[in-house]
Amino acid sequence: MPLILPLLLAVVLFCLGVYGVLARRNAITMLMSFELMLNAVNLNLVAFDAWRLDGLATGQTLAVFVITLAAAEIGLGLAIVLLLFRGHGHVDADAARDLLEKGADR
């Protein structure tokens, strides 16, 4: 399989993720968009590792680290979203600005 096909798929996934982060205000949708971007990075890592054929599996190893980072990010992000929903009844990222302390806003 040529290298361009997984790279094009990764570009599409990354662009969808960027659009989801910039255009949407729902915190759950933003977390899913971050996951799309991380999956695009993983796809690039594995595709370049398969293309390079070095035997060290460096790209696959880095992809495992990125998956671990994504799992930690989702765990922390979902905890914040659940706390936001429990306290305010919504998960709107723009409306979360009232979480600032009174002395912290400038």
Rank of each mutant, 00 (worst) to 15 (best):
1 M>C: 09
4 I>V: 09
5 L>N: 15
5 L>Q: 13
6 P>I: 14
7 L>F: 01
7 L>E: 01
7 L>A: 11
8 L>Q: 11
8 L>K: 01
9 L>V: 04
10 A>K: 04
10 A>E: 00
11 V>T: 04
12 V>Y: 09
12 V>C: 05
15 C>R: 02
15 C>E: 03
15 C>Q: 13
16 L>A: 09
16 L>N: 14
17 G>D: 12
19 Y>P: 00
19 Y>E: 08
19 Y>S: 11
20 G>R: 04
21 V>S: 11
21 V>Y: 09
22 L>G: 15
22 L>K: 15
23 A>R: 15
24 R>C: 03
25 R>Q: 10
26 N>I: 06
26 N>R: 01
29 T>L: 14
31 L>E: 09
32 M>I: 08
32 M>V: 01
32 M>F: 12
33 S>H: 06
33 S>C: 14
33 S>I: 10
33 S>A: 14
36 L>R: 10
37 M>W: 10
38 L>G: 13
39 N>G: 08
39 N>T: 04
40 A>V: 07
40 A>N: 07
41 V>D: 15
42 N>T: 09
43 L>T: 04
44 N>Y: 05
44 N>W: 02
45 L>T: 13
45 L>Q: 15
46 V>A: 10
48 F>Q: 10
49 D>S: 11
49 D>T: 13
50 A>G: 01
52 R>L: 12
52 R>C: 12
52 R>Y: 13
53 L>W: 02
53 L>I: 08
54 D>H: 05
54 D>Y: 07
54 D>L: 15
55 G>S: 03
56 L>N: 03
56 L>E: 11
57 A>T: 10
59 G>V: 13
60 Q>A: 06
60 Q>R: 07
60 Q>H: 08
61 T>S: 01
61 T>W: 00
62 L>G: 11
62 L>S: 13
62 L>C: 07
63 A>Q: 03
64 V>M: 07
65 F>R: 09
65 F>M: 07
66 V>N: 08
66 V>R: 00
67 I>D: 01
67 I>T: 09
68 T>Q: 11
68 T>K: 15
68 T>Y: 09
70 A>L: 12
71 A>G: 06
71 A>K: 13
73 E>L: 15
74 I>L: 09
74 I>R: 00
75 G>A: 11
76 L>Y: 03
76 L>K: 02
77 G>Q: 04
78 L>Y: 02
78 L>K: 00
79 A>G: 08
81 V>H: 02
85 F>V: 01
86 R>L: 01
87 G>K: 02
89 G>T: 01
90 H>W: 00
91 V>M: 10
91 V>Y: 01
92 D>F: 14
93 A>H: 03
93 A>L: 06
93 A>D: 00
93 A>V: 05
94 D>L: 04
94 D>G: 01
95 A>G: 07
95 A>Y: 08
95 A>Q: 15
95 A>L: 02
96 A>L: 14
96 A>R: 00
97 R>H: 14
98 D>A: 04
99 L>Y: 04
99 L>N: 11
100 L>W: 05
100 L>Y: 06
101 E>M: 13
102 K>M: 11
102 K>A: 12
103 G>L: 14
103 G>R: 05
103 G>C: 12
103 G>Y: 09
103 G>T: 05
105 D>Q: 13
105 D>S: 10
105 D>E: 11
105 D>N: 10
106 R>H: 02
